[in-house]
């Protein structure tokens, strides 16, 4: 696939991190991949921008298969040991039932940001969508990001067995990484993000306008990998609830993804510098996010970072 590369250098200009995709691809077949490939946040802006459609990120992920860093080791260790990409702080209490719709929350939501899962479940109930939860294991996304594709497939299959057993026909997601992964690596079951459902159920009419100003950071793996239209929905939702102020370059990666935050926290913080400046420039009351990674990354700098699902659920709840 990389034979198609015309060396135009667009990938070098759109990258938010410290690497040259062009140089990395040139060395794809060399015995030792360039060390800079660990800096890729897998935001896929290069892939979306490439004039000839080279799957750059996939090639970079493949090169990472030969790399072991403390961060990668951590991911592999947690997933092997706990079936989750982070150390679970609780035992997941869900009551799986036979149901056509399942909500798949993902590790970071289940074990670090549970309010997102509560908010999504509440809103699904509000819209009359009966759904089940399940004792999830990691979707495999963190493994794919570091080139461990086979191990990722094993995780996916463990989840698939549960979906099949429960008769699930539609998986509802909230995490961009899970959404992109479940869509890319299986075709058996339909995958929809909660924003798709909010739009299909015309949730806008049920939302009350409130007085705060909010902006939104686009989640790379949902916006760019799955559907740019999801952010049109998100913006429409925000306009229905508050005064929406657009961010300069909302599509620019926050710097946390692709294992970068775990692997090199210094780099992750460096990469979000422009994002922090851009948010400060408009000083919103709320920084809306649609991704647990963005949430954790930006919460270091701002106390008003809120997942959109939580903003919606709060808005819908009778005061």
């Amino acid at each position: 696939m990389t034979d198609r590369c015309v060396k135009c250098g667009i990938c070098e200009m759109v990258c938010p991190s410290f690497l040259s995709a062009l140089r990395s691809l040139d060395m794809e077949r060399s015995a030792r991949p360039p060390a800079e490939v660990v800096n890729c946040t897998t935001c896929n802006r290069c892939v979306a921008s490439c004039p000839v459609g080279v799957p750059i990120t996939k090639a970079i992920e493949r090169m990472r298969d030969n790399i072991m860093t403390p961060g990668y080791m951590e991911t592999l260790d947690y997933i092997t040991r706990y079936g989750a990409s982070v150390v679970p702080d609780i035992e997941l209490h869900v009551r799986p039932k036979k149901c056509k719709v399942a909500y798949f929350a993902g590790c970071l939501t289940n074990y670090r940001l549970r309010k997102i899962a509560d908010a999504v479940s509440f809103t699904l109930d509000f819209m009359g969508i009966e759904h089940t939860r399940l004792p999830e294991v990691c979707c495999g996304s963190p493994l794919n990001r570091i080139g461990r594709f086979d191990q990722a497939r094993e995780m996916l299959e463990k989840n698939m067995q549960q979906f099949r057993k429960l008769g699930v026909e539609t998986i509802v997601t909230s995490c961009p990484g899970c959404t992109s992964t479940l869509l890319e690596y299986q075709d058996e079951i339909e995958v929809v993000h909660y924003l798709d459902l909010y739009d299909a159920h015309d949730i806008y009419g049920a939302l009350k306008k409130e007085g705060y100003r909010a902006t939104i950071q686009y989640p790379c793996h949902l916006y760019r990998n799955v559907s740019p239209y999801t952010m049109k929905i998100a913006e429409k939702v925000l306009r229905s609830m508050c005064d929406y102020v657009p961010l300069d370059e909302p599509e620019r990666c926050c710097g946390a993804g692709g294992g970068v935050r775990r692997n090199d926290i210094g780099l992750a913080r460096k990469l979000k510098r422009k994002k922090v400046d851009d948010i400060n420039a408009i000083s919103p009351d709320v920084v809306a996010v649609v991704c647990p990674q963005c949430s954790i990354q930006l919460s270091e700098n701002f106390s008003n970072v809120k997942d959109l699902s939580i903003l919606v659920a709060r808005n819908l709840k009778p005061s």
Partner: peptide, 10 residues
């Protein structure tokens, strides 16, 4: 189709 994964039709 939308997105880099091309899994959503438009």
């Amino acid at each position: 189709s939308m997105g880099t994964k091309g899994k959503r039709d438009i």
